[in-house]
Structure formats: C-alpha cells, structure tokens
Design a protein around this nucleic acid. Structure first.
Lengths: 159, 159
DNA sequence: TGATAGGTGTTATTTTATAACATATCAACC
DNA sequence: GGTTGATATGTTATAAAATAACACCTATCA
C-alpha cells in the first residue's frame, strides 16, 4: 500500500492494471503499444503525480530506451492523443489517466505543496463553458480544467 | 468598430476603458501602475487575443521600454497576480481581463484556427471540481478552465 | 540617515518543446 | 521477391518560454 494521490491505495496493482488496461485498448484499436510507450506509461503510473518530459527522458536514458527529447515527447504525444495520459498545462507536466477509456473531460486537483495530482471523475462537459459556447456559436473540441490548491495531506503544514 | 473576440465591437473604447478601469483600481489598492505595466496592458487589450511574452517584449523593445525577458514577465506577473490579465496555459500566452474587478473564475474559449480568445463570464466556482474537492478535502485556490475549439468566424473554413 | 520595500536594467542560464532528416520495421499488394 | 506506404525510432540542432541572480534606483518612514 502506498500513499500516492490523496488517499492510500494499492499502488502496485494500480500500475499493473493501468498498463494491462491500456494494452488491451491498444490491441482492440490496432494501436502499437511499443516498449517506449509502455515504459513511459509505467513511469507515469509509478509517480502518480505530474512528471515533466525531461524527468521521464532521464529514466528512459538510464534504461537505454532513448536519450533525446523527441523520444519522450513522441511517446507522451501518443499517450495523450489516445487519452491514456493527460498533460497538466499548469505544470507543463504529464500524468497517467486514472480511468482510461471512459468517455470523460479530464479535470484535475493539483496540490501546490506536494505536487500530487488527482484526476476528478467527471461525467460530461462543463456547464459554464457549454452555455457560453452555445451563445456565441463556438464549437468546443477539448477542455482543460485544472484547480490548484492544497491537498488534504498538506493542509496545515508550514508552507 | 473592429472584429476582435468573436463579435464586432467598439474596440478603441474597449482599450481606453480597460486601461482607465485598471488605473482606478491600482489607485484604490495602492498599486503602482507604472509605464511598462500600463503599456503591456494596452498591448494585450489591443490584441484581444492571447499574446506571447516574447511578442510583447518585441513591442516594448521597439518603444524603448525594455529589452530583456524579465521586463515583460514582471509586468505580466503583476497584471496576472492582480487579475488584470490572465495566462492561457494551453497557449503559454496572455490576455487582458475583459471584466477586471469582478469576482470571477476565469474561463476561456480558444479558437485553434485564428487564436481569438473569449473570456466567458462565469459567476462562481465550477460545480464539477467543487464536488470532487469537497469529497477529498482539497482546498481550491485557483482554477484554470480553457476550452479549445473553433469560433463562429472560423466555422466551415478550410483547415 | 540609513534601512526597507518595490521597481527596473542586465547578464546568463534553465526548462520546455519542436523541426528536420535519416533509418528501421512491417504489412499489403503487384 | 520486390516495391510501396504507413508507422515508429534515432539523432542533430534549434526554437520558445521562463527564471535566477545581481546591480542599481527611488520612495517611504522609523
């Protein structure tokens, strides 16, 4: 049991199920779940926090899986494109999707103290923007919803 | 009349009222609305779209108001900190606030075709995240809400 | 008057991301 | 078998975005 995210949970199973879930979906969709892509997903799942592309690249380099930025960015692009991971724009960093496959608009709670990130499960689109979009005739394709604040574990800690 | 944002409107008055509104608020709050800060706000208001820090810096340089990145970033930090402008995380760019002073959680519609940005007026916090935050005991301090898509003017245009 | 705070000017560097081109792999097809 | 096209990887180089660190200036005020 680890204490990643905001709540303790069985983290090793959360990695293995995450990887196998994505493997299954790639299989079904005819996508190539190559070693680099798989390893990057594992690194993201291990962290359970937003991880920068260059931090990922360092790990890949140690393991002989690639040493130049495009290697990491391409794997991340793949994962993000297919919603197996998300980019946290606020942090210029990436995080594994905690419910791959679900149709969802990603939304995040980001702790500015410990950098933990929790993906909030959200059913549909956002009401606020939907309304504004309809009124102006704007077509929404993707949304970024990120909240920065303090997680329960960091509440009350000195800053 | 110009055609900035998604709708035509009287853009020159929108610049002058924007500047004077901020000047008033700085006065009231004891903040220094210095020449660089004022000029950066004007540049943002003129554009009515997300403008990168280095594009702003280029203008400042032409006008002899500063030539190094920190000059632009400091002014932008000031404007963002006091909510006179917002950063569009998705674009790494900045935009003037269209309703300074209102208590609001900024939310944006970003056209990926022409880069126009419209700030949606939103009354309060976002329901989706509020719920998730309450459940986990997370304290939200700031939210980023950005929707990328196609604005009415660009609908149907070849991509 | 000298101490502090906020603002500006400048150099240098760090961090994040992509362009461009070469090479490799594999399946589909003639 | 050989060719073609699509997809993935390897590599060099560079672009774009942001900040660290330090010097200096000016105003305020104890």
């Amino acid at each position: 049991m680890g204490s990643f995210g905001f709540k303790p949970h069985d983290h090793s199973s959360c990695i293995s199920t995450g990887v196998s879930e994505v493997a299954k979906r790639c299989e079904a969709a005819g996508l190539q779940f190559t070693p680099v892509r798989k390893r990057v997903l594992e690194i993201l799942l291990e962290g359970h926090r937003a991880i920068g592309a260059y931090e990922i690249l360092d790990k890949l380099r140690e393991e002989g899986l690639g040493s130049q930025p495009p290697v990491a960015y391409r794997a991340l692009d793949f994962l993000v494109k297919h919603r197996f991971a998300h980019k946290i724009e606020k942090l210029n960093a990436f995080i594994a999707c905690t419910h791959p496959g679900d149709m969802h608009a990603p939304a995040f709670l980001i702790c500015r103290s410990c950098d933990a990130v929790e993906e909030a499960l959200t059913a549909g689109e956002d009401g606020r923007l939907d309304k504004a979009a309809q009124e102006t005739g704007f077509t929404i394709e993707r949304t970024v919803l990120e909240a920065e604040g303090v997680c329960p574990n960091c509440q009350g800690k000195s800053e």
